[in-house]
Amino acid sequence: MASGPLREPTFLILTSLAAEPRHGYGIIQDVEGLSEGRVRLRAGTLYGSLDRLVEQGLAAADREEVEQGRLRRYYRITGAGRQLLEAEVARLAANARAAGHRLGLEGLAP
């Protein structure tokens, strides 16, 4: 399960957690920003992905806080999650470079 391309929401959630631990609503906002408004996670999807990430050891619950009477649980990326994300970034970058070459966009490719 941990191998193979990540689905976009999972990729973006891991990316969001890579910077710092975040709570559910924090992840939703950050993912919306990261994707320039394209991906707006809904709560069911978000927690479904988080469950899978935690089960696979790619993310973990970090701490709990109560803000304005509401429970906030923060999640962080684990070592395995970071490794997987790095591998995925390398894979996507290689694909993008290859596509860039074919299209004659060398200047634009990283």
Partner: peptide, 9 residues
């Protein structure tokens, strides 16, 4: 936790 997220959004 989910209610907190839903209500914030």
């Amino acid at each position: 936790e989910m209610i907190a997220t839903l209500m914030s959004a």
